[in-house]
Design a binder for these strands. Structure first.
Length: 635
DNA sequence: CTAGGGTTAG
């Protein structure tokens, strides 16, 4: 039976008829492939490709370029690359298509390789080629190759192109050649906002905050990237207050610039840095309102913020709201590290096992978290077993950080000789973190012999770190070796050792209150000190004896006790007790390791006042509750 | 087409 066109689809039937009479040739396919670019219609593209093949049509370079772009934009870089390889007489257009596709997929080495072939064939790059090649140079820090591209673009006059010029600026920035980046910027006749933003990021990366600020002030068209570059730059340079202030300014200013998910991600580490839990929660709410919370990277940044601000529960619930497919390596690492830093070793281990079961390949950071978690919880055998299997089972090469974790793990368990032997077997030179771990373990286990070995190394590796001198000096004093104490004091003075002042802070109603040791500058100092004066009697009644071995041994016992009584962490805890309602959790952050006497005192305070107190020191969290600490008195 | 981003120990 013959097919009869009905009047209603005569347009279509005309099309079919004309297709039968004039079978489609390459330009026909070409235009359809072009229309499929960016439409994510892989199936349709494949069918069309097959259709061509059946009809014996071989794509030329022009059609292949469209097809490469179609495949790449539909997620199939493999087919894109095969097609590129199979095409004879590749044109610059085809090279541009594959170079763009490879860069899109982060294949920097391949990009450079293909560009080299292009160059070898005598085909010149243009302003569609160089930005991608330069980005690949930047990612790989191939500054030499980047300079060659710079030279080639000079010859073809492309260096005045805004895109090429900005890519050159960025390449120099990423390769740490700020001078060249600035020179490029100065010589670029037409700069756009990206050119400025690249340079701002460059100055921030090198810690030259004032130069970045100057650029930011001078530019007249700031977009969200400009603001975000400044905010993240402040965060990276430890200027959390400035980052938060600029974020506030962005919200209040009527500039029509709206924060996006990258902005939120950039400001969260500032909250984490200053342990500003309330600020962090506010930003979380803000992200939720703006619909930015669903982003998996934002959730990971929120997890890290909550964990570092002392709220493990919030970190965990963020993690639990993530869909299994969203949980990537960074998300798992963040959760494992969160558990580890709070002393929840078993949970760190089970999270790691879940990660493996989910089919996510661990990396070095995963193991740093896992091993430190085992260390914090005294899971010595588990930690050692993971350490030995990381390279054999998971194909992750142990680095210096991992050795530091294991020295710490053995040291806490009192296995100091094993720890020392491990150090001598390390494939790399042991640094301060490894020797520092050994020294503090020797102090805890009162092993003067090994302490001396560790300290000897540390005096060379970090001669200006006061902590090492103090630990060894106190150990000598405990052993009554006063000659050695005297020698060490002389050494300490001659080295002009810088002593980091101990400071603690706590957040009340979103405002941080900062205290130094013996600080009397706080408006509520009077009440704080009178509370602290009552404390010793109260807690001595509960069985507390001040441990003066944590003070420097060159003052009288009485003075020592007084110094201890006004350590910054005690001041912050006392202030917290005064200014928060009973039953709430107190959160205190200290810039150094918590002192042993304060640790004992805070344990008693948690019992006497019935408060949960969470102290973050440089290394980890201490959860004090009912007279006990989550660290099990070992840290 | 170029610019801004989350996870490491002690």
């Amino acid at each position: 039976m013959k097919w009869k066109p009905s009047p209603s689809n005569s347009g279509l039937s005309n099309l079919v008829q004309s297709l039968v009479q004039n079978p489609p040739q390459l330009p026909f396919y070409s235009s359809i492939f072009k229309s499929l670019i960016g439409q994510n219609c892989l199936k349709l593209g494949q069918q069309l490709h097959a259709h061509m093949a059946i009809r014996g049509l071989v794509p030329d370079a022009f059609v292949a370029a469209k097809m490469v772009a179609m495949y790449a934009s539909s997620g199939d870089i493999i087919s894109a690359f095969h097609l590129f390889r199979a095409t004879e007489n590749p044109s610059p257009l085809l090279f541009n298509a594959i170079i763009r596709a490879l860069t899109l997929y982060g294949k920097s080495r391949k990009t450079i390789e293909i560009y080299s072939q292009m160059h070898y064939l005598g085909l010149r790059g243009d302003y569609f080629t160089f930005p991608f090649v330069l980005k690949s140079c930047a990612d790989l820090s191939f500054v030499g190759f980047g300079r060659c591209i710079h030279g080639l673009s000079l010859r073809s006059g492309l260096e005045i192109d805004t895109y090429v010029g900005t890519s050159l600026i960025d390449m120099y920035v990423k390769c740490s050649q700020l001078g060249n980046a600035q020179k490029m910027f100065d010589e670029l006749p037409i700069r756009d906002v990206s050119s400025w933003n690249s340079l701002i990021a460059g100055y921030m990366k090198d810690g030259l905050v004032q130069y970045a600020e100057e650029l930011f002030r001078r530019m007249n068209n700031r977009n969200i990237v400009s603001w975000t570059a400044m905010i993240s730059g402040y965060t990276q340079n430890g200027l959390a207050d400035k980052a938060l202030a600029l974020f506030d300014q962005l919200l209040s200013e009527d500039s029509g610039v709206r924060p996006n998910w990258v902005t939120v991600m950039s400001v969260l580490p500032a909250c984490a840095h200053s342990a500003a839990l309330e600020r962090g929660r506010q930003i979380h709410s803000f992200a939720r309102e703006r619909g930015l919370e669903s982003n998996a990277s934002v959730k990971t940044a929120l997890m890290a913020m909550y964990a570092k601000c002392g709220s493990l529960a919030d970190a965990r619930s963020c993690f639990n709201t993530m869909r299994p497919k969203e949980k990537n390596l960074v998300a798992w690492n963040t959760m494992i590290t969160a558990y580890a830093s709070h002393g929840y070793g078993k949970e760190a281990v089970s999270t790691f096992e879940n990660m493996i079961r989910a089919g996510v390949q661990p990396d070095g950071i995963t193991f740093t978290g896992l091993l430190s978690g085992c260390s914090h919880s005294g899971l010595v055998d588990a930690g050692l077993s993971y350490f030995y299997s990381m390279r054999t089972v998971y194909l992750v090469e142990p680095t210096h950080e991992h050795y530091a974790c294991i020295v710490d793990l053995l040291g806490r368990a009192g296995r100091l000789v094993e720890a020392y032997n491990l150090i001598s077997q390390m494939p790399m030179k042991a640094g301060p973190s490894v020797w520092g771990s050994l020294l503090s373990a020797s102090r805890s286990h009162r092993n003067l012999e090994i302490a001396e070995l560790a300290a000897k190394q540390l005096f060379v590796l970090e001669p200006h770190n006061s902590g090492n001198y103090i630990i060894l000096s106190n150990m000598y004093a405990d052993a009554g070796m006063w000659e050695e104490v005297k020698d060490l004091r002389t050494k300490l003075k001659s080295q002009r050792v810088k002593k980091t002042p101990g400071g603690s802070w706590t957040e009340v109603n979103g405002k941080a209150h900062f205290f130094l040791g013996g600080d009397t500058s706080h408006p509520q100092s009077k009440q704080i000190y009178s509370l602290l004066e009552e404390l010793p009697q109260k807690i001595k009644l509960a069985g507390y004896v001040p441990d003066t071995s944590f003070a420097l041994h060159d003052i009288s016992e009485e003075e020592k006790e007084h110094n201890l009584a006004t350590h910054s962490e005690k001041l912050a805890v006392a202030f917290g007790l005064l200014s928060s309602s009973p039953g709430t959790v107190l959160r205190v952050t200290k810039n150094l390791r918590i002192c042993g006497d304060c640790h004992t005192a805070i344990k008693f305070i948690s019992r006497i006042y019935g408060r949960e107190i969470i102290v973050r020191d440089v290394n980890r969290f201490h959860h004090f509750k009912d007279g006990c600490c989550s660290c099990g008195d070992f840290w």
